[in-house]
């Protein structure tokens, strides 16, 4: 679906994106994870053909990105972080207008219903809440049933309920076979949604694997427990695979003095920090 080979790009004379290589398989959700200014959005701009002045090879849907034409965009959908809608038009008018730019488009009503906007479709977009705008913006990117979807921070600024709706919509798209490239600095979204994630820092790919493999590569999960000792509450920590060797834990279990026990697995943020020395959020 996407093959990037030795990608280099800079806005100035100083190199920014350097020697980047990766491939995105059809039907997967591929995430770019990195802090602000790491180069995620720049890579997305290159992949979507907005920046043609790169060096190296970027093949998207069998087309070199810098040589894309209008046909290229018949199969590519983009959902930018900030909703891009005509504020003075209604939701329905917006969708009709954007659909008219494509040769083929899906019926508007089912799309509006899928995001719960069917009853609000005739309201002007300027009267929409942020969540409604984000949902409308998302289905705008689906109007022409793209085979490849680029999503930039799709849950950014949404309340938990709207973020859930958005994540379900993304998973639904994967189910229908759409390849999704997701750009985010939200590790929870990346862990939940992505089949594979790539860490980007200062324009370089630091790691690329499935979230599970990345987490496992750091080592085993740990457990933290508390117990009663001389009328006081004490705490202990043990690696999950080594609990049999933790004599303290064995003792408090046998003496029935355990007060609480919690397992904790490393998060993508921990892995990211370990690999790059930087924090995601």
């Amino acid at each position: 679906m996407i093959t990037v080979d030795n990608l280099n790009f800079s806005y100035t004379r100083k190199p920014f994106i350097e020697s980047m290589n990766f491939a995105v398989k059809p039907g997967e959700i591929f995430g770019f994870l990195g802090p602000s200014g790491a180069g995620k959005s720049t890579v997305q701009k290159i992949l979507t053909g907005l920046i043609p002045t790169y060096k190296g090879s970027v093949v998207v849907n069998q087309t070199e990105a810098k040589k894309r034409n209008s046909d290229f965009y018949e199969h590519v959908g983009v959902d930018f972080e900030v909703p891009s809608l005509f504020e003075k038009l209604t939701g329905r008018e917006n969708l009709r207008y954007f659909a008219s730019l494509y040769r083929h488009s899906l019926p508007i009503e089912p799309l509006l219903e899928s995001v719960g906007l069917a009853n609000e479709a005739d309201k002007k977009v300027m009267d929409y809440s942020k969540g409604m705008k984000s949902r409308l913006n998302f289905i705008k990117a689906l109007l022409h049933a793209p085979s490849l979807l680029f999503l930039d921070e799709p849950t950014s600024g949404l309340d938990p309920s709207n973020a859930r709706v958005m994540k379900d919509l993304i998973l639904q798209q994967r189910k229908s076979g759409t390849t999704i490239v997701l750009t985010t600095h939200n590790m929870y979204d990346a862990t939940e949604l992505c089949d594979r994630v790539a860490f980007i820092v200062d324009g370089t790919l630091c790691a690329l694997d499935t979230p599970r493999n990345l987490i496992m590569s750091r080592g085993a999960a740990t457990i933290t427990y508390s117990y009663r000792e001389n009328a006081q509450e004490c705490q202990g920590t043990s690696v999950l695979a080594e609990t049999a060797n933790d004599s303290c834990l064995q003792r408090v279990l046998q003496e029935n003095r355990l007060l609480s026990i919690h397992s904790s697995e490393p998060t993508l943020n921990d892995i990211f920090s370990e690999l790059t020395g930087r924090k995601l959020q």
Partner: peptide, 17 residues
């Protein structure tokens, strides 16, 4: 201001159109 110029550049209209 509404972010439309960038979005229209990734539709069949493209920047030139």
């Amino acid at each position: 201001e509404q972010g439309l110029t960038r979005y229209l550049s990734v539709t069949p209209l493209q920047t030139r159109g």
